[in-house]
């Protein structure tokens, strides 16, 4: 496996995962705001905050209203991480590695790309929004399924899997952070129905509401949410699950390497250890937002070590 090819496979997969999470977040936020129209505060601002895109948005739009944010996050060509751009990047990287992926996978990615190139602001005319995101999610599920059922479990798969899982760990922590930015109207609302409704929406973004109810019952409690989305090693969209997969892929890749190449990156071992030994309660007490930032920083560091070890050509 060439280092350059490994890099393209990684980024192809990572951009697909990124596009999917963006779609999920925008979708859930949109529908949450229909059910509980916000009072006063700018309800789309948290979306921009969790992706760190307030400044970029402000350069191009005057107010963070629904139409502008939807456009910015979905189809804006000037926003490097709009859903359309993520799909475009996935496909651009895919072009280099068509000989490493199945033609079925390429066909699905290319079709998604061709569709995305045709998107216009008209997709946000209600009631089209629901169908748009439902269809888009289907595309991602389809691609994920084709990937699982057509790619041999070799290095190509491992580098794609790394891209998917590293992005997932990072995105799930960003998503949890949305509540940090999403201020409740009054202090008294904490733990109230609106608060719970927002947490339920967060779970739904990760397709985790049903899994939550199955294992933790009907009552939505913060520490249980943190548990399922960060610490649970069985739920496929939790940070722990994703990081275990990252470790697994790195281990398989490392098996072919000479012994001087280290198998696990220190940042990864450390973060996985924390997710094993610490408890949700403890994390909430010491500051959830800080902990989530730490997860994101660790993901950046894991990527940096990955690049150094396997992906740079020079």
């Amino acid at each position: 496996m060439l280092r350059r090819i490994a890099n393209h496979l990684f980024w192809m997969a990572r951009n697909l995962e990124r596009a999917e999470w963006r779609a999920r977040l925008v979708d859930v936020n949109y529908h949450l705001l229909i059910e509980t129209p916000p009072r006063g505060t700018s309800p789309w601002d948290p979306m921009l905050a969790i992706f760190g895109e307030r400044a970029l948005f402000a350069e191009r739009y005057s107010t963070a209203d629904e139409a502008s944010v939807l456009k910015f996050m979905t189809i804006d060509a000037e926003n490097p991480s709009s859903i359309r751009n993520c799909i475009n990047l996935a496909r651009e990287n895919g072009r280099f590695v068509r000989h490493h992926i199945s033609s079925e996978l390429w066909l699905d990615i290319n079709t998604l790309y061709l569709n995305a190139m045709d998107w216009t602001a008209a997709i946000f005319d209600s009631p089209g929004v629901f169908m748009f995101f439902a269809d888009l999610k289907d595309c991602f599920y389809r691609i994920a399924g084709v990937l699982q059922s057509t790619i041999p479990r070799d290095l190509s798969y491992d580098f794609m899997w790394l891209g998917i899982m590293l992005e997932r760990a990072e995105d799930v922590s960003r998503m949890l952070d949305v509540k940090y930015h999403f201020l409740l109207p009054r202090l008294a609302d904490v733990g109230g129905p609106l608060d719970m409704q927002q947490w339920a929406a967060v779970l739904r973004s990760a397709s985790g509401l049903e899994a939550y109810r199955k294992s933790h019952g009907n009552l939505i409690r913060l520490e249980k949410i943190i548990d399922i989305l960060l610490f649970d090693s069985t739920f496929p969209r939790s940070a722990k699950f994703a990081l275990d997969e990252v470790a697994g892929a790195l281990d398989r890749i490392g098996r072919g390497a000479s012994c001087e190449m280290k198998r696990e990156t220190p940042a990864l071992s450390q973060l996985r250890a924390e997710l094993t030994t610490r408890s949700p309660k403890e994390v909430i007490k010491q500051g959830l937002h800080e902990f989530l930032l730490k997860v994101q920083d660790s993901c950046t560091e894991i990527y940096r070590q990955l690049v150094e070890q396997y992906l740079t050509v020079d």
Partner: peptide, 23 residues
């Protein structure tokens, strides 16, 4: 077969090599 660009290849000791993730 692998699809390579010039940057993926290197010549040393009159032999041609590809830069793979494992060397």
């Amino acid at each position: 077969i692998e699809l390579v660009e010039g940057q993926d290849l290197v010549c040393c000791d009159h032999k041609l090599y590809a830069k793979t993730v494992h060397g």
